[in-house]
Every structure is written in C-alpha cells, then in structure tokens.
C-alpha cells in the first residue's frame, strides 16, 4: 500500500469550485444524459480526484460563428485541455455541418506534446509543422501525420450538430501526456 498513499485518507474538503464547475458544465451540456464521475482518490490539496466514466456531451461552438480557416478553441472533456474546432471549407473524414467540413482536434502534438496553436495552414488543411520537431497533420484525414514523428493521429474530437449547436461527444485517440483521457487528460498547455 506504500505505493498508493493517496487512497489512504479521506478527503477533508468537498469538491472545489473548479471541479464542481467542470461537473456542472459536463452535466448541463449533456442535456438528456449526465456525465458520471467516480471519486477514485484524494489529491494532495485535499480535493477529491474525479474520474469520468464516459465522454460527456458538451456544446463547443455555433455553426453560424465558424469562419473557414479560423480555428476556435475549446476545452473538452474535463476542462483543462486545449482543443480547436475548425471549418475547413472542404469535406473531411467524419466532418460535420452541411458541408461535412467541420472537424475538431487536440492542439497537443502527439510526438512530444508541443502545442500547435497558430500553426494551422488553411491552404493545405494541415495543422503544423509543429514548432518542436516539424510534424504536420492532415485535418481532412483524421489528423493523420503527413510527414513527421508522432506515433498516433492528432486526437480527434467526435462532433454532433443539432440546429446551430456543435457538440463534442467523444475523443478518438489518446491526448498527449495522458495515460487515459477520462482519468487524467487535464493537460496544462505551456506555449
């Protein structure tokens, strides 16, 4: 049990404002369904460690607000991630919207975690080159590496459109840095 000291004591404080807010966002966004959390341990700060049991449904943008080639940032699924949704102007694999050209991905390069913020090339529908080791990802093809060193596609956020609302409904692929998206994906981005 020496390996698991964090599970030895009872959390003294209730979930903080931040974790309650995440909980409420997730729960509210799912509409019909409520994202379920499981308390699996207690942080050094006395706050409970929450693990999501499934991907929540979360509104991330409005169709009418998206402009071609201009990524819009959002956090999903737990609230600490940096993702973007972008209208490519060209149909994409699992793209949504009337032109099936709206896709969403993580900003973290799956090679060594460098942020790709500001690297979108609308001419080629490419994210990158990553400033660290030059990997490029094709957003029409599930974030597949065009040239580069990442060992998985850029994690893609599954989307759903209802009316003007775009919802995130899941994550395809593991976020850089995480061992499990649902358990520990709250990666802080240092740009």
């Amino acid at each position: 049990m020496l390996n698991e000291p964090r599970r030895e004591h009872i959390c003294l404080s209730p979930p903080s404002e931040r974790s309650r807010r995440e909980f409420l966002i997730a729960a509210g966004a799912t509409g019909a369904g409520v994202a379920a959390f499981l308390i699996v341990g207690c942080g050094d700060d006395g706050e409970p460690d929450l693990v999501m049991l499934g991907y929540p449904r979360q509104r991330i943008a409005a169709l009418s607000e998206l402009r071609q080639g201009e990524p819009v940032d959002f956090a999903y699924p737990a609230g600490g991630e940096q993702n973007f949704v972008v209208k490519l102007g060209e149909a994409a694999q699992i793209g949504v919207g009337p032109e099936e050209d709206i896709v969403a991905f993580s900003y973290l390069c799956t090679h060594m975690g460098c942020p790709l913020i500001g690297q979108y090339k609308d001419e080629h529908k490419i994210m990158g080159p990553c400033p660290c080791h030059f990997t490029t990802f094709d957003l029409r093809h599930n974030g597949m590496v065009v040239l580069g060193q990442a060992t998985q596609n850029l994690p893609q956020i599954a989307l759903l459109v209802e009316g003007d609302d775009i919802y995130a409904t899941g994550v395809i692929g593991l976020f850089y840095g995480a061992g499990s998206n649902l358990r520990d994906a709250r990666v802080e981005v240092r740009s």
């Binding site: 599930n142 599954a158 061992g179």
Partner: peptide, 21 residues
C-alpha cells in the same frame, strides 16, 4: 450520419486509436 465517432472512423478504414494505455 453526423453523430460521428469510433464506428465511423473504423468504417473509414483507419486504424482505431486507443484513448488509454
């Protein structure tokens, strides 16, 4: 068609990515 996810990714013929290790 617009409720996308894992099954559609597989239908597209790409490798299924894991979300944990």
């Amino acid at each position: 068609k617009r409720d996308t996810g894992r099954s559609e990714v597989l239908a597209a013929g790409i490798a299924e990515p894991a979300d944990q290790v």
